[in-house]
Design a protein around this nucleic acid. Structure first.
Lengths: 251, 251
DNA sequence: GTTTTTTATTTTGTATGCGCAGTGCGCCGT
DNA sequence: ACGGCGCACTGCGCATACAAAATAAAAAAC
């Protein structure tokens, strides 16, 4: 039956996991990473059956993953017409960044009050990983880890609804960056991330907020509103997961 | 037994709908309204099969509706153990209100800039309906409409991520109000809602924000967040009796 | 040759069946 | 009689099967 790929290994150590539903998360992480890596171009149709074949799971799982991605506005779910990779417009990007600024301000203020030493250590660890990813040239992982840093920061703020919202915003931001960031423009946000941690550790609220707002400005200013190109073929995009290049099981 | 309803009519005109997936939304709205009406007590188990029987749909639909409700933290989805009506703690309520204040401030500022005449008219219409519901004594509908007012206001702000977040916050707030609001204390928020609309129409940003913050204060002050009414958490309920819980409290 | 209608194929939406995990109860051992 | 163990029951997770909708294609009419 499904002899496409049997173990369904995770793409990296996608921090999103840790839940019970394993398969969901794995498929979710794979697709999300593929989008971030720009192996899936905006507008690409995400056929449930094709994805099911590729990941060796039924459409039920695919559908859940897509539903989740849709909720984070990373894919667009058109009724009766399937899912496509979201292609955020400039206006949508602006709205996301507006919300990001609002949320990040609140998060930093709370984090200064509530962040524990362990959380700060964990944050530093994540920044190091982020830096390593970029120095390895793994841009997709870097963007993802950069997002996870901000998510972790939200967790340190200790406000559950904020974390949930931040998760969605970070996903969308990652997609926007993947789409609009100009070339190899040294997405060296990890440096600013470290400064943020230092300021939080110093419990300097004003400084943290200031740094964060500048961080947002920098991300914003790195965006370039012209670039779009990537693959359309699902099998090609996920070829590194496949054992056989061509599947000929189904009639 | 229960007479299962056959045509699946909507509970009121649940404003959430208007989408494509009809059955999802209907089931979602029914369950949500039942929770708001407190016909479903916090902690009540929501069996997929039973709900499917009641609504005349398969577990697939029920599952989607529950998943949606879970995402809005209105029900709690325990892996392999089913769904139960959420019972937000006081701390969770505080977190929701913190986020609400942040979001409402942003929304009002944006709404002052962007709200159109049609949107204001629509808002007034909704407030009238809200008032009617309360005067009819339909508390559940009143709470729901009050929430939908705030959601509509978010839409008038013209920021999609904020709307999405607001939807989740409003759902949780409604649940919290349903649980914690003291008695029949005439949840006369519609009056303040009208004032808000007037101030928006006058494009008086400072006034709108001020009114909104006071509105939040009023909602807050109506809740008795000091004494918990009920809880599904046995440990919490009998904490004053328990010295050592018998149940395996691993993890 | 172009356009429109009809049909066929593909793809999503919904329902159901099977297997497994979680839970409670009864049985047995001490 | 009490505590540990295993069995049966309930109910969800996942896969599959079926039905409806949309798209693509083909054929017919203009």
């Amino acid at each position: 039956m499904n002899d496409q790929l049997q173990p369904l290994k995770k793409p990296a150590r996608a921090g999103k996991a840790g839940r019970s539903g394993t398969q969901d998360d794995i498929v979710y992480a794979h697709i999300f990473e593929a989008i971030l890596e720009q192996r899936l171009a905006p507008g690409t149709k995400l056929s449930e059956e094709a994805l099911g074949e590729i990941f060796g799971v039924s459409r039920t799982i695919i559908r859940r993953a897509l539903s989740r991605l849709a909720h984070e506005s990373v894919v667009l779910l058109r009724p009766n017409r399937g899912a496509v990779v979201a292609s955020p417009t400039v206006e949508e990007a602006r709205q996301v960044f507006f919300s990001r600024r609002m949320v990040e301000r609140a998060i930093t203020e709370l984090a200064v009050q509530h962040a524990t030493a362990e959380q700060l250590a964990e944050l530093r660890h994540m920044v190091r990983e982020e830096r390593d990813s970029f120095s390895r040239g793994d841009r997709g992982a870097g963007i993802r880890l950069s997002g996870e840093f901000h998510l972790k920061l939200a967790e340190a703020a200790g406000n559950a609804p904020l974390v949930s919202f931040q998760r969605s915003l970070v996903s969308q931001t990652s997609l926007i960056i993947a789409q609009y960031e100009s070339g190899n423009r040294s997405h060296c946000s990890y440096d600013e991330h470290m400064q943020l941690i230092d300021a939080i550790e110093a419990r300097d609220a004003a400084q943290v907020v200031s740094l964060m707002m500048h961080h947002m400005d920098h991300i914003d200013s790195k965006l370039n509103l012209d670039e779009e190109s990537a693959s359309d073929d699902l099998h090609a995009v996920f070829s590194h997961l496949l054992k056989k290049p061509k599947v000929a099981a189904k009639g």
